[in-house]
Design a protein around this nucleic acid. Structure first.
Lengths: 237, 237
DNA sequence: TGTACATCAGTGAACGCGCGTTCACTGATGTAC
DNA sequence: TGTACATCAGTGAACGCGCGTTCACTGATGTAC
């Protein structure tokens, strides 16, 4: 991966002012010819960096492969340009993470709304949760399975988003308790956390051990969801 | 961290044939004076490397910090010595992982045996499972949360150990079904996998997000376990 | 209307780092004769 | 009983790599006078 060769070609093209012959696009070489942003439009590059970092996280399936250099090369700029828009590598990945949480939250919210009845809503939310994890395993990994930063003793911005998402779940549980479908004597927050744990469990194991002899993934997911729903339901008369 | 200085001192001491003044033991400097192994006792070093690698995984809480160089330095040998006993870094970590699984399995087995009744046994197993994860989070992470190696499409030796451990759980579930305590119409394997998922979920979230505002960890663990037990129990008359 | 200047979006080259791994070597110890 | 030799458990120095980050610079574009 000959770093920088693409960037050099691009510079020449900008000087000539017209589109150069398309360079062979191998591996992570710049995906298209960039033009320097208009004045005041520096943040265009910021968005592009963010999009590329997110795509690389999804494609490579490996947080470590998302290096400053690799992102820069794929965007078609030099590594120092990244630092014009993000303080350091961690800030870049944190920004990706915040976007992932937004997408995740949106998915969960629409699943909750589309369902009739609180128990069915719980099932739908569970399914959407695991689906998201399986569609974007490396995003999910970064959001929920990453090693905690020992320097940070408080929830990050992204984690506070999680809490926001959890608020939806708690609300759902309370609604279920109000209608009598869900065991009313336990704390709604505690029930919600327990549901989250179980759902995370199946998502995380499928992400971490895709080659394990699970049998049918779908059946496993449904089994976990049913166990949860039974586990939090009121005793039927 | 001046690599190698300890090793040099050690060589001198071996030549002199008597214990040298103890070198200041700062950071990961060699923890004690080593003597070259007796003839035919080369595997003594192998065990020591394994123990140190396991300890470093536990201490540093970071798989990446367990580098060949760091392990060698802490053992008190030079990096190439590692290769006399392990093919490469991955083989070393895999060996650590196999040992972790053995300890884990032993813990689970004794929890299962010490309990009266299948449902109480399920609870005990769940508690032991999470306890192990919280005691040795980085071991747990390496065992169950590591990124899958894309080159490996089959379960590793360590993962086959997991299957062995699961066999115990499946047996427990079958026993519960036989006594009528556990829902008999569902497949015992499916129930076991679902229980594993949920238990993994609480362990993994506590490992990955220790600073999250969980409230009381113990209460959370019990809530998940109770939800599971309710979820797999027979409907009571 | 022309020109000096400030601003902005980047570049290019280099920094020091720690890593996994390799290779030729050493020196103590046991063994065959 | 002495000595040459094979074996074994290591050493020491170096390899090439990719990484995050920094620093002085460039060149196009807008703006003040």
């Amino acid at each position: 991966m000959r770093s920088g060769s693409g960037a050099r070609k691009r510079t020449v093209s900008t000087a000539s002012g017209e589109t150069p012959p398309v360079a062979p696009n191998e591996g992570f070489a710049p995906s298209r010819t960039r033009h320097r942003a208009q004045r005041g439009q520096g943040q265009v590059l910021r968005d592009e960096i963010l999009a590329v970092a997110a795509a690389m996280l999804a494609d490579t399936g490996n947080e470590e492969a998302v290096s400053i250099r690799a992102v820069a090369e794929r965007v078609g700029v030099t590594p120092p340009s990244i630092y014009l828009h993000f303080a350091d590598k961690e800030a870049l990945l944190e920004a990706v993470c915040v976007e992932s949480f937004a997408a995740f939250d949106e998915r969960i919210a629409s699943a909750a709304q589309a369902s009739a009845g609180p128990l069915e809503a719980l099932r739908a939310v569970g399914r959407s949760y695991v689906e998201f994890a399986l569609e974007r395993p490396e995003h999910y990994r970064y959001m929920f399975m990453r090693r905690p930063d020992p320097e940070v003793n408080a929830p990050s911005a992204a984690e506070l988003e999680t809490i926001g998402g959890l608020a939806r779940l708690i609300e759902l549980v309370r609604k279920g308790q109000a209608t009598g479908a869900i065991e009313p004597r336990r704390d709604a927050v505690e029930i919600s956390y327990a549901l989250w744990c179980a759902t995370h469990g199946v998502a995380a194991l499928l992400v971490a051990k895709p080659y394990f002899p699970w049998g049918d993934h779908h059946a496993l997911i449904e089994a976990v969801i049913e166990m949860c729903v039974r586990g939090v339901s009121s005793d039927m008369p």
